[in-house]
Design a binder for these strands. Structure first.
Length: 794
RNA sequence: GCCGAAGUGGCGGAAUUGGUAGACGCGCGGGACUCAAAAUCCCGUUCCUCUAGGGGAGUGUGGGUUCGAUUCCCACCUUCGGCACCA
């Protein structure tokens, strides 16, 4: 009997697959139904492919192979999300150009992906940093621009005064620049936004999507639709007013102060030249050293703020109340918040700055005083001291008060979203240039589509000097205006890499031919993606951006599907010693040595056998020998001629098949192990072997091909049909009952399937270990669950 | 802090709709083969208790519903993901 040699065998089949092109999808005229099986493409990091990537790509490939055997034309492309910050940071540190490191990393990762022996089509060569690709990223930008979804506004960035550069959040550690350890400030720059908020309502519609409930919940919360009221507070001794948004107009009578974001444009106007200016500026600076999370957390960080010397009138009771800047007021929406004793943060703030507070809601409507409390009263209850609303339940009063506010003309009902517009400008070198030209006469001019791509200049000096590195490339910056031909300058910022990754699935079908235009027909043939598998960390950003761009493209008429990803599944994260793998922690585990030692089949099966792939887990190679043993044992078992019990074989085929269908690959493998343990003694006949090896095929493709060939087949096992168990072997005439007394198991009993309740109970009563509990006892209840349980309650 | 998950033997994990907790694998113990070792094969393996048969406890913690809860409800603890410039 021959043992299995994985390395030799895997090389043989990978070569055969490459030569026959069996896994190349026919993108044009296949008669099989299409199946677009997609994994989130990787960033070509210096860590290369680690175990986490395999943990994603192995199940995706198993699923793709399964769908192929189910009769689909499976398109399973692979590309690289190759623009991004790490390559640029590495370049600044070492002087190696990002283009060079990106190339090296991609080439190495391609080799590693090939070693999986998957169906992934790497010949598509999709790389977001190539001009063939970013030409179309720029084209997408222009479509959004033309349709009014791209515009420039001021927005703050993290600015290191010493490095003279914008920092990513990741590079700011406790308010300090990670590189030079100097102070980081917030600085306003004019930047490009995509108006994703215009699509907020549409993005809340998940009709027809097979997505995890938790992902939908997270996105919905992220979009954060709320119904509330914009209320105008007149500024005392002035004609102007401050508008705030609130979902709790029922607490209006308790409002005793207002808070405003320190970044609010009016703050500067209010304070300049006043006695409050110095203090407000000092506190503003302090606040800007905090992250948004620190600013808005309750509990933890202290509240920070200052009076700005302005008072407004509470429109409900005419009281004059002070306005403060506060760290927890962010410059989103109106940037103004009405504050009262019924909100935790407001309460804490008022306590710190000695601002008077009032309650207007209590459990039973009796008057309570904040002085007697050390925290906010946030529960619902009955209103008091609230004019005509006194005595009402606050939740019932809420819509009535909104009506009243609107009718009396000091506010209006408003729908608000937590979602913010997407800031896409990056003051960086390694990204796709934004295709805009600034002309003194014509203003902001989009680059004509026929002039795309705006080629990213190859520069040697990408060390930041106060503005985007592209500003230093004079040949790039200086250009003639496309409209009037006079001297003009290019936009020097590049696009957020999330822009590149928010439409790549639309490019794959055309990626083979780099010159090819956007072909609606092609996009329609392959979209939407039937299965999208990637990490849950992308739930709110990438997955929302991609839906937005796709919906915009649909609205512009470039693709007919309304959603990009019909079905979504998240793989879990693989950690090492409890931490996310990263070069900086030095805990990156490479798959290479395992593939070399055990082969790709064993390694991928071990990753899937570790547990449900949607769970992830901590990496440990201890159990891999179990899978390696199984592979060898299976191979030897397949050489034994004999005959196994059909009930056993068909039962395993059914169980494993159902598990694969549900993507419970660990269970599928366990079912095959169990079967192998039995058939190792009996052997199987050819028909039985042919069934079982087809079930194994998506899990261990190389091994299955070899056995399929041994069984005399000339064509690939992946051209064979997925086997279905024959039910006739699975019917049994007896079942095992668990017999319980007071819910505790006392015996088991094998009975005929069709036996009725009375006979079954009788049989159970006569069991010795049951009878002893029933004797001298009063049987209150008898339970009979057909096929499962017989129970007595005494 | 907010949003979303997850906690089951020494370890990874399994368990249709509330119905025999621990499948499968690792590890460990015992045995076979061997001069020996490796490999392989066979048996056992939640814990405690006990004379065979059994008995008791047990799915993060504390309560609850139920004849019966890993599964449903309430409160809590711990760990992980995300929080808008890492991707």
């Amino acid at each position: 009997m021959n043992s299995y040699n994985p390395n030799e065998n895997e090389a043989k089949w990978q070569k055969a697959w490459r030569e026959s092109g069996i896994f190349k999808a026919d993108l044009e005229n296949s008669e099989r139904p299409k199946y677009y099986n997609l994994t989130m493409f990787p960033y070509p990091s210096g860590d290369k492919l680690h175990i986490g990537h395999w943990y994603n790509y192995a199940p995706v490939d198993t699923w793709g192979r399964y769908m192929k055997m189910k009769g689909f034309e499976v398109f399973q492309p692979m590309g690289f999300d190759s623009f991004g910050l790490p390559a640029e940071n590495y370049a600044i540190k070492t002087g190696v150009h990002p283009a060079e490191t990106t190339r090296t990393n991609i080439d190495k990762m391609k080799e590693q992906i090939a070693a999986i022996g998957g169906m992934y089509d790497l010949d598509l060569n999709l790389e977001t940093s190539s001009p063939e690709y970013y030409k179309w990223t720029q084209w997408v930008f222009l479509q959004l621009y033309k349709n009014g979804l791209a515009e420039r506004r001021e927005a703050p960035v993290n600015w290191c005064t010493s490095c003279q550069t914008v920092l990513a959040n990741e590079q700011v550690v406790e308010g300090i620049c990670e590189r030079c350890k100097n102070e980081v400030i917030r600085k306003n720059l004019t930047q490009w936004f995509f108006k994703i908020t215009d699509y907020a309502e549409q993005l809340l519609d998940y009709e027809g999507l097979d997505w995890p409930e938790k992902t939908i919940a997270m996105q919905k919360n992220w979009i954060g639709k709320s119904e509330g009221v914009n209320i105008n507070f007149k500024i005392a001794d002035s004609e102007d007013s401050l508008t705030c948004y609130t979902t709790r107009p029922d607490t209006l009578y308790s409002v005793t102060f207002m808070v405003i974001a320190p970044e609010h444009p009016l703050v500067e106007k209010f304070i300049s030249g006043t006695e409050y200016e110095k203090e407000v500026r000092k506190v503003t600076k302090e606040i800007q050293g905090q992250t948004d999370i620190e600013r808005t957390s309750t509990g933890g960080k202290d509240k920070l703020g200052a009076y700005i010397g302005v008072d407004v009138i509470n429109p409900a009771n005419g009281e004059k109340i002070p306005v403060y800047i506060a760290n927890f007021a962010l410059m989103y929406g109106t940037g103004v918040v009405m504050a009262d004793a019924h909100d935790e943060r407001d309460f804490e703030f008022a306590q710190k700055y000695d601002i008077p507070l009032k309650f207007v809601v209590s459990e039973d409507g009796s008057e309570i005083d904040p002085k007697d409390f050390d925290e906010a009263y946030v529960d619902d209850g009955i209103l008091f001291n609230s004019g005509e609303f006194t005595g009402m339940n606050n939740r019932e009063a809420l819509p009535k008060m909104a009506e009243w506010i609107e009718k009396d003309g000091f506010g209006e009902k408003t729908i608000n979203f937590r979602l913010r517009d997407w800031l896409i400008s990056r003051q960086r070198y390694w990204g796709a240039p934004i295709p805009i030209i600034y002309c003194e006469k014509c203003g902001e001019v989009p680059v004509p589509e026929e002039d795309l791509p705006v080629v990213h200049p190859h520069i040697e000096d990408y060390v930041p000097k106060g503005q985007s590195p592209l500003a230093g490339a004079e040949d790039f910056v200086n250009v003639n205006c496309p409209k009037c031909d006079s001297a003009a300058k290019r936009e020097v910022d590049t696009m957020d890499t999330f822009v590149c990754s928010s439409w790549y699935f639309l490019r794959y079908p055309d990626a083979m031919n780099s010159a090819k235009a956007w072909e609606k027909e092609h996009a329609n043939k392959w979209m939407p993606v039937d299965m999208y598998i990637g990490g849950p960390e992308h739930a709110c950003m990438h997955l929302l951006y991609a839906r937005f761009i796709h919906k915009a493209m649909n609205n512009f008429g470039f693709v007919d599907s309304k959603e990009p990803f019909k079905r979504l599944v998240h793989q879990g994260m693989v950690t090492k010693d409890g931490a996310k793998m990263s070069k900086s922690k030095g805990n990156v585990v490479s798959p290479d040595e395992f593939v070399e030692k055990y082969g790709s089949d064993v390694f991928r099966m071990y990753l899937m056998f570790m547990g449900p792939f949607t769970d992830g887990g901590d990496w440990n190679d201890q159990g891999i020998t179990g899978v390696a043993r199984f592979v060898d044992r299976f191979f030897r078992m397949m050489q034994i001629d004999g005959e196994a019990d059909d009930a056993l074989v068909h039962g395993a085929v059914k169980r494993a098949g159902e598990a694969v269908e549900k993507m419970n690959f660990n269970i599928a493998i366990a079912a095959l192990m169990e079967l192998t343990n039995s058939t190792f003694k009996t052997g199987m006949n050819t028909g039985q072997k042919e069934m079982v090896v087809r079930v194994l095929a998506p899990l261990a493709p190389h091994l299955a091909e070899e056995i399929w060939e041994m069984l005399g087949h000339k064509e690939s096992v992946f051209l064979a049909e997925w086997p279905e168990a024959d039910e006739k072997f699975l019917v049994t005439d007896s079942v095992t009952y668990a017999v319980q007394v007071n819910g505790k198991l006392r015996a088991t009993l094998e009975l005929a399937k069709e036996l009725g309740k009375e006979e079954a109970l009788e049989a159970a009563r006569s069991l010795e270990n049951v009878a002893k509990y029933l004797k001298d006892a009063d049987v209150k209840k008898e339970i009979f669950v057909p096929g499962k349980i017989i129970g007595f309650v005494v």
